[in-house]
Computed example of a mutant assay.
Amino acid sequence: MEIRVEDQDEDGAPIELAEPETLSDRLLEMAGATVLSLYRRPALATAISTGVGWGIRYEQLWRRALGGRRRRPHINWHEGGRGPALVLINGFTGSGIGWPTVWVSELEKHFRVIRVDNRGTGWSRRAPMPFTISDMADDIADVLTACGLETATVFGQSMGGMIAQEFAMRHPHRVDRLVLCATIPPVPAFTANPHGVSLAAGIAFPSGRDIRRPTKQQLTDFLDALHKFTAAGYEPPDNRLEEFAAQNLVRGTSRYGAFCQGRAINAWRDPSRLRHIYTPTVIVQGAADRVVVPANGHSLAELIPGAEYVEVPGVGHLIPWEATQVLTDLLMKDREHPTTSNPHQPKENDHG
């Protein structure tokens, strides 16, 4: 599957993109376009991704050699509620506290909700770095084990959706259902958007300092960045975006943590592996997503056997904030009418 760089939706209508507003925004946009132009050719994209992956592994070995014995990853999580287990995995630089409180409270009435701090974020900032998407997928398995759980429904937002896919491939018997939200398939199958690079850089907290009482200006600056992730013209019904901004500032992700997550994303490759996901899967995509264009959701639906595709009109990248009820209804539908098997899964005696 050839990688594409798009600024149009599936019907050919242009996706409304905000123009870069500062010199740094423009430079990031240019850098993003330059890098992503290298990914236009699948063979070159795979080679770059492979090189990034080898670089991560080499640095891991080097750090272990200098540091003596291998340090066990320290991964933090937050949990609450009762019922079937539901794991929430956040996106780039997002931690386990960075979810809409109103949504988490509703989910905890029906599920045992486990919100993981990905490596480099929240209270997992001391976890070993660098790392890969596979490492973070194995972290989810470790968290489930620590919680005394064999299986869970796994929900992944953006980068968290990549981790969720990898988790389903590496630990297939530990996933009840898979919900992939505003995310992409591995290199080279994703559809790139140069504008997304500058947007992602805008939310990467630059210093990693914790600001327990953000100033009005700090909140305003972060809010401006967050609004670029939502559909054009989106007006939240309450203070959920202000809350999200404060959550990110209270426990910031360092530049190096964000850099390591970026490396992990770029090293994640081989979409052919997705054909081995037989977990019941739902792909949720915002039709007006300015970061992950809808073509990515369509690609995932083609790559994962039997996956259901749900596109939400008028919604951007922050689906848990912009379309909270849609996700709640979807998760509750799965809880009340669980799908126990995928009709596309091979039978035990099927050797073909």
Results as ranks from 00 to 15, higher is better:
81 G>W: 01
28 L>I: 12
173 H>L: 12
313 P>N: 06
307 A>G: 01
339 T>A: 06
111 F>I: 13
299 S>E: 15
218 Q>R: 08
247 Q>A: 03
115 R>G: 00
19 E>D: 09
243 E>V: 14
190 F>G: 11
76 N>L: 04
68 G>L: 11
4 R>I: 13
308 E>M: 10
348 E>D: 14
14 P>R: 12
314 G>C: 10
233 G>F: 03
216 K>P: 00
163 I>K: 01
272 S>A: 14
323 A>Y: 09
32 G>R: 03
243 E>R: 14
25 D>K: 08
99 W>T: 07
263 R>P: 02
136 M>L: 07
201 A>G: 11
72 R>V: 13
2 E>G: 03
343 P>L: 03
109 K>W: 00
156 G>L: 04
282 V>A: 02
203 I>A: 08
53 G>V: 12
284 V>C: 09
161 G>Y: 06
26 R>E: 04
247 Q>H: 05
201 A>E: 03
333 K>R: 14
166 E>I: 03
260 C>Y: 00
352 G>P: 07
196 G>I: 08
266 N>W: 08
292 V>I: 15
84 P>Q: 15
294 P>Y: 00
305 P>T: 12
263 R>I: 09
201 A>H: 04
277 I>K: 01
299 S>W: 11
278 Y>M: 07
148 G>Q: 12
17 L>K: 09
129 M>L: 10
264 A>V: 09
164 A>W: 03
331 L>T: 08
216 K>A: 04
253 T>S: 02
95 S>W: 00
119 R>P: 06
143 V>S: 05
18 A>E: 14
325 Q>R: 15
283 I>K: 09
94 G>L: 13
180 L>F: 07
344 H>E: 15
91 G>N: 02
309 Y>H: 13
351 H>N: 13
101 T>Y: 01
120 G>K: 01
47 A>G: 12
346 P>S: 02
41 R>K: 07
147 C>E: 15
96 G>C: 08
335 R>V: 03
301 A>P: 05
151 T>P: 00
175 V>D: 03
56 I>T: 09
282 V>F: 02
208 G>T: 06
161 G>P: 09
116 V>S: 04
216 K>H: 02
83 G>E: 11
180 L>A: 10
346 P>A: 05
86 L>R: 05
43 A>G: 02
30 M>D: 07
134 S>G: 08
189 A>K: 08
47 A>H: 12
287 A>S: 07
236 P>Y: 10
259 F>W: 09
28 L>T: 14
39 Y>H: 12
124 S>Q: 07
270 D>S: 10
50 T>L: 14
124 S>D: 04
251 R>A: 00
159 M>F: 04
188 P>N: 07
245 A>H: 04
